[in-house]
Design a protein around this nucleic acid. Sequence first.
DNA 1: TAGATTGTTAATCGATTAACAATC
DNA 2: TAGATTGTTAATCGATTAACAATC
Lengths: 210, 210
Amino acid sequence: MHKEKIPKLTIPRLSLYYRALLESRESAFISSEELSKLTQFSAAQVRKDLTYFGEFGTPGKGYRIVELKEVILKILGTGRQRNIALIGAGNLGLALLAYRGFAVQGFRIVAAFDSNLSKIGKTFEGVLIRGMNELPQVVRNKNIEIAIIAVPANVAQEAVNKVIKSGITAILNFAPIRPKAPKGEEILNIDLSIELERLSYFLKRKSKKV
Amino acid sequence: MHKEKIPKLTIPRLSLYYRALLESRESAFISSEELSKLTQFSAAQVRKDLTYFGEFGTPGKGYRIVELKEVILKILGTGRQRNIALIGAGNLGLALLAYRGFAVQGFRIVAAFDSNLSKIGKTFEGVLIRGMNELPQVVRNKNIEIAIIAVPANVAQEAVNKVIKSGITAILNFAPIRPKAPKGEEILNIDLSIELERLSYFLKRKSKKV
DNA sequence: TAGATTGTTAATCGATTAACAATC
DNA sequence: TAGATTGTTAATCGATTAACAATC
């Protein structure tokens, strides 16, 4: 196994290679050049990314599609189900609950939490909304590994603290803050207003260039 | 004005500096060191990012908070309202419509579109859902500069094509595809399953390390 | 064998960090 | 003036690309 350091962005690229492979059922093999065309990454990039994890290709032929798919699943750890706790059952939270799109990849929201008493006890999409106090036990009982934070900004840090205390180490955060957390936690931030501001910067630049 | 190339990630950092400044009302000046503490970026990074756009600081004192906020607003182009078209009025789309969180920064969804006849004509959060055929005229009449794509994957490329044809150049895409688009379009992808797969990779690694 | 394509090394590119003279 | 902090240059780090020997 290689010991070279793996670039951060290699991982999301692997996901995109996988997606491309799903649509490549025509032949048994695929070359880095073909994967490059499908994903817009360079062929050298494709080969480099893959060799961080082993030698999966056959010179002269390319990569066996069936095998490569299995390999990527294994690398990403998406071969099995991963249980998710949803923190916050507001508009966004409930939309995520209803969005069964990622269930196919094995991700499943198996529990939802809110601090609003009027929501606790209700069921959405077959998932019961519970009070935050139940978090630690439910995490344990349902083998939950990931939390999605979909609460307002002003209570987000508090929510993250509770999630961490419950033993969860992988967090997808939709609240517009950068939560503080100890080492060993992996927090990915999806920050709508920052993305919109990037677009605004792009528009500003464009208008200036005229 | 500097002509050095500006790193891609400088822009989202500027947004985060701005957020930090909003909470710094104690004194008139703030140093790069203090901004560093608030944002977790290095002080050198803070200074470097700012000098791409000019010299705003005073040696020995730091940056005047009021001035720096104005400067960043100006750089990002967020000083004025930016109108948004929402494409897709499903669960996620309607959640975004209801989420007024980014209205404060001047971003406003002023029109929504769907191809589902049962939705067209209805109003959510004061916004009328229209058919896609109305897109070009509404974009013109309402001065829309940004589109948010919140449609299923299988119709996302088609939606993006129509958006581009309507003259919009800045797109925030929530569909799990990488849309193809001509140069001159700025498309930012928010891809839930890819983020979840990154978390899965993290969990996989962690479990191996034990 | 000839042609194709891998895996890998070296070169390049881009971004961050460290250090410090300039300056308020 | 002495102390603090900027703006900038050079060094470092990290990631991507180009090129090609190895190999199926």
